[in-house]
Design a protein around this nucleic acid. Structure first.
Lengths: 214, 214
DNA sequence: ATCAGTCTTTACTCATGAGTAAAGTCCCGG
DNA sequence: CCGGGACTTTACTCATGAGTAAAGACTGAT
């Protein structure tokens, strides 16, 4: 009977469990990829290496993702999500522009020190097809516009000194993104390793006073 | 006569002109490579492309450089030199730590907007052999230590508010280096293109007031 | 004209790694 | 104990691009 009844009930394992399992596999691959990209760089990491690290083989990755680029994109998404969440959360608060901006910046900093910080910051359009590149650009731009908007609000409500919102957003984003370049190599070996929250607070100190009207 | 007299006077063209010509050729290749790396990324630029852009062929590049990596390193050197110069120049001045730091930062920003800014910021150890990587790390560390040292001097002479010199140096370096990521793609098309000096001034405004003791 | 030396090109080699096809393997229901 | 389906692996193909060897071309001195 080739034409099985196309009802929802599938055999042995129900579809829910199947897709859950698949999602877990995808997450494991994404995490392994993010670590490998961070440690060895995107171009110096082969899918064979990632697979080997998980005890599987390359075609299994292809069963879960469209290709290396797709995998990179998923890593990127995992990295931006906390940043978008930080903006969403602060949206509902009634604090001043300055307080909201600094709250976002703090969470931003902590996110960058995480597993996906490197990929998120360092993925550039050059590495991707035009379509993917456009999607990433759009997400990055959303973050940038969010920072500018909070700066503008802060200027408007008097909590931030008058400044060029675009340039100031770039300065702040740069200071935060740069964490991805030095954090791992600096903090791992020595005892002087700062925990992410302290790191964020000290890094942002210059912005805290620099944004304040005098 | 296989054994020509090993005196300094070489035939037809004297050695001075030869080496001058060679140096000019090297510079032309370095500049073309820096532009190509910036526009298409290091890994997506082949030596064939660079050569074609100059109207020559790949083996000619090999006559002037040891390989792609060597070429990348030379681009990096061309990029850091202005930064080192900025530190050297400010060394001899008697100004306060804060003034000296801001002077260096200003020149730093302008340098990053230049042709070699991208390569200097984005060259990472991953792309290079361990030996090259170590040389680059050392040069980058020199810049970083220079910033920290000026910050410490500023704190000592009272021109900079007490802060964590290491974190503050990272914040400043991040804001400056980040220029390389957005400058070209942003500024080229529109009429809103800031000239480097104005850009530097507006970007650094938040640091100018943020470093000041209150 | 010819020769020697320097520089440049044509025409390769060779390693790497993304992507794929086809053959297993495992698990459960009958 | 047989069959079918989801998943995984072995064993490829194929494009790219770094690096090189050997032949050619230009130069100016004799």
């Amino acid at each position: 009977m080739p034409f099985a009844p196309p009802v929802q009930g599938s055999p042995w394992l129900d579809p829910q469990d199947r897709s859950r399992l698949r999602a877990r596999k995808r997450e494991a691959v994404i995490l392994a990829a993010a670590r490998a990209f961070r440690d060895r760089g995107y171009h110096h990491t082969s899918l064979d290496e990632i697979a080997a690290g998980l005890g599987i083989t390359k075609p299994t990755i292809y069963a879960l993702f469209d290709g290396k680029e797709d995998l990179l994109f998923e890593c990127f998404l995992a990295g931006v999500e906390p940043l978008r969440a930080a903006f969403r959360e602060v949206e509902t608060r009634g604090a001043s522009g300055r307080e909201r901006l600094l709250s976002v910046a703090h969470r931003y900093a902590v996110a960058i020190t995480g597993e996906f910080g490197w990929v998120m910051v360092r993925v550039e359009g050059e590495d991707l097809s035009p379509a993917m590149s456009a999607r990433i650009k759009s997400l990055k731009s959303e973050i940038d516009q969010g920072l500018r908007s909070l700066i503008r609000k802060g200027i408007a409500d008097g909590s931030i000194a008058p400044c060029d919102p675009k340039m100031t957003a770039f300065a702040l984003a740069g200071a935060l993104n740069w964490i991805a370049f030095w954090h791992r190599s600096e903090s791992s070996p020595a005892a002087g390793a700062l925990d992410p929250k302290t790191l964020a607070a000290r890094l942002l100190q210059v912005f805290e006073s620099g944004l304040e009207p005098r």
